[in-house]
Simulated assay, not measured.
Amino acid sequence: MPTENPLISVIVPIFNAEPYLEQCLLSIENQTYPNIEIICLNDGSTDNSLSIMRRHEERDSRIKIVDKENQGYGATCNRGLEEACGYYISIVEPDDWIEPDMYLSMVACASVFNETIDIVKTPYWRIWLPDTPDQHKLNCSYRNRVHPPSQPFTIGDAAHLLAHHPSIWSAIYRKGFLDENSIHFRPFPGAGWADNPFLVETLCQAKAIAYFDEPFYCYREETPEKSKSFALNNTLLPLERWNDMMDVLEQLDVTDERVLRAHYSRGFTYLSGIIEEVDLTHAHVRDAATAMFKRMDQQIVLSDPEISPGCKRMFCDLRKLPAPKIDRIGYLRGLFGQGIYNLKNTGVRNTFFATKNFLVKRKARTGRK
């Protein structure tokens, strides 16, 4: 067990974050849990980010600046892991911010257990339409949904966490756990979605996860326009990362159907987001989708009531399997339950927006025009 007030190393990988960095750093400095070190890693920024870091360093001795050449998100986080001295590791992205009691609450959560906790996980706030007059906070898509039979737990008892946004930053990680399992980030160029493999490597190897269903991390979501631009310019990246995650599951010999089901769900989500913009008539998309589907267990996919009939038909078509038997009642029951959850979790306005978007793009998301 850690000391009463374990040190937390906060890793902040920074590249050209000038518009948001002041808010981010202040939110870390103003934590009600003071025993932290703040490792600001300047990844070759060309704006005024380094000047902002230095200004904060002058007034807060807990800040350490690492000024380095540009290497990308993964390599920069790895440098932060090398520099960190804390019992726990936290990652805060420089365009986000955290609420004052985040670390105090996470350490308190871990302290109630007799076991050594590897990961403390929480939900997060979605900052919808950030920096516009319509900006508002929404619950993330797994708040009030994670109910392990006991705590602490291993990921099979809360596999739902593997189906949603990686959100690796809404957690703290025991550094000894990361070191013992040689867990680090893949050094992909740029942002590279390096959080995807890290999510699986951590959650699937942790022997003791504690979940506290209270959001503290404020995540600036991409606008719909930026998401569309990403899909057009980085079309296959999500499927590449899905395959990286599948590689990890195979290397770890994960056979738990609950975990595989969650990972397959992520694959369908990623593919649906791609083919909304670049459909299956494009050979490279069709080939990548087929390759992904061949890595999925047919029985698990076709028996999953949460995978839509259209997605199951697409799966069978690309794998050249017989047309699937469809349990429409089970699927519609699930849709109704999802709608009720959305109303409670994000309110009427956002549920209406999400439903409208789902209906408009329903055919495109299953490979049909």
Rank of each mutant, 00 (worst) to 15 (best):
S27W: 11
S27K: 09
I28Y: 11
N30I: 01
P34K: 08
I36A: 07
E37R: 09
I38D: 05
I39P: 03
I39N: 10
I39E: 03
I39F: 07
L41I: 15
D43G: 01
D43W: 00
G44A: 04
G44T: 02
S45I: 10
S45A: 09
T46V: 12
L50N: 08
S51T: 10
R54D: 09
R55D: 14
H56K: 15
E58I: 12
R59F: 13
R59I: 15
D60V: 11
D60F: 15
S61D: 15
R62G: 12
I63E: 04
I65H: 02
D67V: 00
K68Y: 05
K68G: 10
E69F: 06
N70H: 14
G72C: 10
G72V: 07
G72K: 03
Y73M: 14
T76K: 00
T76H: 02
T76R: 00
C77H: 07
N78A: 10
R79G: 03
R79T: 14
L81I: 06
L81Q: 07
L81T: 04
E83Y: 08
A84S: 15
C85S: 15
G86I: 05
G86L: 04
Y87V: 08
Y88T: 01
I89A: 00
S90A: 15
S90I: 00
I91W: 03
I91A: 08
I91M: 11
P94Y: 03
D95E: 13
D96E: 08
W97Q: 01
E99F: 02
E99V: 04
P100E: 14
Y103A: 02
Y103I: 01
Y103L: 10
L104Y: 13
S105V: 02
M106N: 02
M106T: 01
V107H: 07
A108R: 14
C109P: 00
C109I: 00
A110D: 08
S111V: 12
V112P: 02
F113A: 08
F113G: 06
F113V: 12
F113Q: 09
N114L: 14
E115T: 10
I117S: 10
I117E: 08
D118Y: 07
D118C: 09
D118I: 05
I119E: 07
I119H: 05
K121C: 11
T122A: 10
T122K: 07
Y124Q: 10
Y124E: 14
Y124M: 13
R126Q: 09
R126S: 04
I127N: 13
W128H: 12
W128P: 00
L129Y: 05
D131T: 03
T132S: 13
P133Q: 06
D134K: 11
D134A: 10
K137S: 06
L138Y: 01
N139F: 04
N139K: 06
C140R: 00
C140F: 00
S141V: 02
S141A: 12
Y142K: 04
Y142D: 05
Y142C: 09
Y142N: 11
R143M: 13
R143F: 04
N144P: 01
R145V: 01
V146Y: 03
V146D: 08
H147D: 10
H147W: 08
H147A: 11
P148G: 08
P149M: 09
S150P: 00
